[in-house]
C-alpha cells in the first residue's frame, strides 16, 4: 500500500511547482509573474511545514502508520520549496546583489525571520537520511524538534510582510496553534493525572 501511496504523494507534492512553471510559460501568472513565483513558493513552503506537522496527529487519528512514513518526504518538500523561494528572492528581487541582500537580512525583520527559518531548516534536511538518524541517535529527535521553531518563524515572517490584510497569516497561525494544541493535550493530561489510562 505504502509503495503505491509514496510515489503518488511525491507527484502531488511536485504539482504546485509544475503548475507554476506551466502557467509561467503560458504567461498565465498575471501582470507580475515574478511576484507570483516568490509568493507561491513561500506559501507552499509554509503549507508543507504544516502538513509535515500534521502527520503525527493524523497517525493518532487514523491509527495507521503511513502518515509517519510520509513525514520525511513532506518535510523535504518544504525544504525544496524554501530553496525555490530563496532562489526567486536572490535572482528576481535582488539579482545577486549580495550587499543589498545582507542589508535586507539585517534590517528587515520579515527577511531576518525567513532567513532564520531557512538556516534552521537546512540541517534538518541534511540529517533526514536513515544513516544520519542512526548516527545521531537520541540527539536526532531533539534536533528535529526545531521544526516547531521553524514553523513559528515562518508564520511570523508572513505576519510581518503583510501590508494591511492579516487574514491569511491569521489562518496559518490558527492551523499551527491547533497542531500544537493536539500535541500538548495528552502529556498535559498525563501530568495532571487526569488521563484515565
Amino acid at each position: 500500500m505504502l509503495r503505491l501511496i509514496k510515489p503518488i504523494v511525491f507527484i502531488l507534492c511536485l504539482l504546485p511547482l509544475v503548475m507554476l512553471f506551466v502557467n509561467f510559460y503560458h504567461d498565465e501568472l498575471g501582470a507580475n509573474p515574478f511576484e507570483v513565483l516568490t509568493r507561491s513558493s513561500g506559501e507552499w513552503t509554509l503549507r508543507f511545514l504544516l502538513i509535515t506537522l500534521a502527520m503525527t496527529p493524523l497517525r493518532q487519528l487514523t491509527g495507521s502508520a503511513w502518515p509517519l512514513r510520509l513525514r520525511r518526504m513532506l518535510g523535504l518538500f518544504s525544504f525544496f520549496y524554501v530553496c525555490v523561494h530563496l532562489i526567486t528572492y536572490v535572482v528576481l528581487d535582488h539579482f545577486f546583489d549580495w550587499d543589498e541582500i545582507l542589508l535586507d537580512i539585517i534590517k528587515r525583520p520579515y527577511i531576518t525571520f525567513g532567513m532564520l527559518a531557512f538556516i534552521l531548516l537546512t540541517p534538518l534536511a541534511m540529517t533526514s537520511t536513515k544513516k544520519m538518524m542512526k548516527r545521531l541517535g537520541r540527539r536526532w529527535k531533539s534536533l528535529h524538534k526545531l521544526i516547531y521553531v521553524i514553523a513559528i518563524l515562518g508564520v511570523l515572517h508572513f505576519f510581518l510582510l503583510v501590508k494591511a490584510d492579516l487574514k491569511e497569516p491569521v489562518i496559518y497561525a490558527i492551523i499551527l496553534l491547533v497542531l500544537f494544541a493536539v500535541r500538548i493535550k495528552p502529556t498535559f493530561l498525563l501530568k495532571s493525572g487526569l488521563n484515565p489510562q
Binding site: E100, L103, Y110
Partner: peptide, 9 residues
C-alpha cells in the same frame, strides 16, 4: 520600514 525603495520592477 520593511523594504528598501531603491529599486522597482
Amino acid at each position: 520600514p520593511r523594504w528598501s525603495q531603491r529599486k522597482e520592477r
